Simulated assay, not measured.
Amino acid sequence: MWLRRRRIAHGFLSEADQLTHEALRSGFQAGRHLRSGLTADTAEKAARHLRLVLGGSALAVCDGQEVLTWTGHGEHHRDQALGHARQTLESGDTAVLGRRDLPCARPDCDVRAGVVAPLVVEDRVIGTLTAYSDRPSPGLARALEQVASWVSDQLELGELDRERTRAVEAELRSLRAQISPHFIYNSLAAIASFVRTDPERARELLLEFADFTRYALRRGGAFTTLADELRNIERYLVLEQARFGDRLQVNLLVAPEVLTVVLPYLAVQPLVENAVRHGLADKVGTGTVTITATDLGDQAEISVEDDGAGSDPEDVRRALDGEDAVDGAGTNESVGLGNVDARLRRVYGDDHGLVVETAPGLGTKVTFRVPKYAPGVHPG
């Protein structure tokens, strides 16, 4: 009896599987570049991978003004590519090119036909993808339309990422502007009060103030470590205790395992500022602020609690919804509460927003959880 052994030339993958794997890998590499936007540099890097997916003689990428890149054979046709793209840029429709569109005196040239497909972002044609071949091919036309649609999706996702980044930067600028002018004025006044009676204390407080404002107004990345955030909160509390003395008590309960957790920059400090303001406002005697960071396995839980005046839950709801909640002094009642909540939800999802427990006369506790590791989240 003869047994026929199946020949496996490339490990456990069939030839079709290998081709599929290569196409997916090339597509992934192209998408990584396209997420940065449609430029000459990203188009050149992505086009090499896209041509591997499509096959054909050559591939050109154009925006509305120029040919961003040409890869493959027939480089002498590059100057014609923008003209080939013009109709598609204007109409948004796929166009088929024939020999009449590609005049050439070189008998060995294999750029004799082509297909032009639009690249669309937010319903606007921002460029074209043109695949060239040695003869007309319905299969190439269908494949190019699919690839152009996928490229458009990558470009649109990249634009959404940039819009998100711009929104976060705008929110951070807004949050910095909300750092209470009263706090700055009162801190400087407290420092001034020690200049004659205790110059060394005044000098230490002035250094703490400089370090606090340097961190709070920094122009770094959107993320920081919990350790750095707590370090700056400590500076803030030293300055507030210089004002309030024994009236302000602080409890800090932090698990060492969560100090390296990365979270949005200025995610905790505004909650502490809010707690100090409301923990001592209209309160006779001592006010206590408790900051807790707990290890929950794959997550860290951070809470800021005060035993002060508390708030109407409806006012808190409006603050979290981004509506103005204004107190009698004309300042935001909950400093940055809605801002912090929105940034946490944007980065980690709606399950990671702020949870606020409060009632008039019963103090306030604000809690949130962040994963210890999250894609794209790293200190700036």
Rank of each mutant, 00 (worst) to 15 (best):
L160T: 13
T358S: 05
L337F: 01
E171R: 07
H352K: 08
F368C: 08
I233E: 14
V366Q: 02
E145W: 09
R25Y: 14
G287C: 04
G98D: 04
R35M: 03
A374T: 01
P270F: 04
R346A: 13
R235H: 15
L175K: 06
T367M: 05
Y265P: 01
D295L: 08
A267N: 04
A210I: 14
Q87I: 02
Q80L: 15
N251Q: 15
G380L: 06
W70Y: 11
A105T: 13
L230I: 14
P371G: 12
G139A: 15
D134C: 08
W150T: 09
S57L: 02
L337W: 00
E357T: 06
T224V: 05
S149H: 07
R135S: 15
E273Y: 00
I191Y: 03
D351R: 12
D341C: 07
T39K: 02
T213W: 10
D246P: 07
R135G: 15
I302E: 02
A58D: 06
G380C: 04
A131H: 01
T364D: 00
L362S: 14
L102E: 03
A242W: 07
L59P: 09
S187L: 11
L175M: 15
H73G: 10
L263W: 01
S152D: 02
F209K: 02
P256C: 11
R6S: 15
G285L: 09
E15Q: 10
A210V: 11
N251H: 14
D198T: 07
V115H: 01
S57D: 02
G72N: 05
D341N: 03
V168Q: 02
D312G: 04
S187Q: 09
T364I: 11
R51Q: 08
D351P: 13
Y132R: 06
A325I: 03
R176W: 15
S311C: 01
P360I: 01
R106F: 12
A58M: 01
A40Q: 12
Y348N: 06
A190V: 08
L207M: 11
T39D: 11
V254P: 09
D246K: 03
A167H: 12
Y265N: 02
E156M: 12
C62A: 05
T42F: 12
V61L: 05
L175D: 13
E314N: 10
D79G: 14
S36A: 13
H10D: 13
D351V: 06
G285R: 05
L207F: 10
Q87E: 00
E301A: 04
S193M: 08
V61I: 13
N186A: 12
R106Q: 11
E200I: 09
P264S: 05
P313L: 02
V268N: 09
V272L: 05
A293G: 08
V96I: 07
G279E: 08
L175G: 11
A177Q: 12
L320D: 00
G245A: 05
P138Y: 10
G322M: 10
V272D: 03
W2N: 15
F368L: 10
V347H: 00
V147R: 03
L97Q: 02
D153W: 06
D93M: 14
Q65G: 15
L206R: 06
E229H: 07
A143W: 01
T294H: 05
P360F: 06
N339C: 12
I191W: 00
G338K: 00
R243N: 00
A95E: 04
R32P: 10
V61F: 04
R6C: 14
